[in-house]
Design a binder for these strands. Sequence first.
DNA 1: GCGACAG
DNA 2: ATCTTGTCGC
Length: 285
Amino acid sequence: MASKDVDDDEDFDELEEDDSEIVAGMGSLTLSPDEAGKRVTWEKEQSKLKSQLITVDSPDVRSWRKGNSLFFGLHNIAGVDISFVKGTQKACAMMVILTFPDLRVAHISKEIVEMTEPYIPGFLAFREVSFLMDRLEEIKGNNPHLMPQVIMVDGNGILHPRGLGLASHFGILCGIPCIGVAKNLFCVDGLQKSADFKEKISKLKKKGDSFDLKGDSGKLWGKAVRTSDDAVNPVYVSIGHKISLETATKLVIACSVKRIPEPTRKADLLSRQELRPKSNRKKQY
DNA sequence: GCGACAG
DNA sequence: ATCTTGTCGC
């Protein structure tokens, strides 16, 4: 390609700087070549794990039932979350154990960590799951009697581009039933925050109201759930692992006081508090 | 081609 | 995720 087509009027762009940060159109935002490479590996990993996914109530979950009570044998729920310090890699990984049904904090397992992997939509688990596993192992080693019967995760389960969000990924790795609870809708399979979608949300009038998140393919990805009479915005519940969408939804509602169900809400509050100077801390509960 | 994108 | 004060309501 020569360059002497002089007289092409204007003096156009010579603007080709070092784009070490390539703008990839691989279905994501700006990715470096390094990150683009990880995706290939990570997608394979998600595919392998997905083959082990269980989307119905496991024997453990079914054993909680007694008579008309769906959660009679449930006494221990965990909530996990990771908070960060603004422009750093420093973060606090948190797993809180709550009693059920009273929802009191029974135990806290936390650790200040350095995040190494980047956040890439669709690959959140590769950034956070190892730190969550560490919290669980810590509890198993030091307080085995507090091991959670089910875990609520801040993020999606199967409501994910490849059907394997953080809640599912974590559930498969640890073997404990997990539920995905996201604050924002991950638009997959045609799901979108359209006017029609907002219309459905406006029809959720009270705590416990919900509607199915069914994609263009007909697949049921999860449910939009109003978790409080006060909170207009719903949360998006999806199967993580070893629990059905119906049971997961009922449990999320049973654990909700504010918009975010208590397990993940406490995990979020406490992990953030941990990253703040002691002097500026207030009682979160 | 353009816009969107859990935490 | 995080950046941030006031403000409306019980």
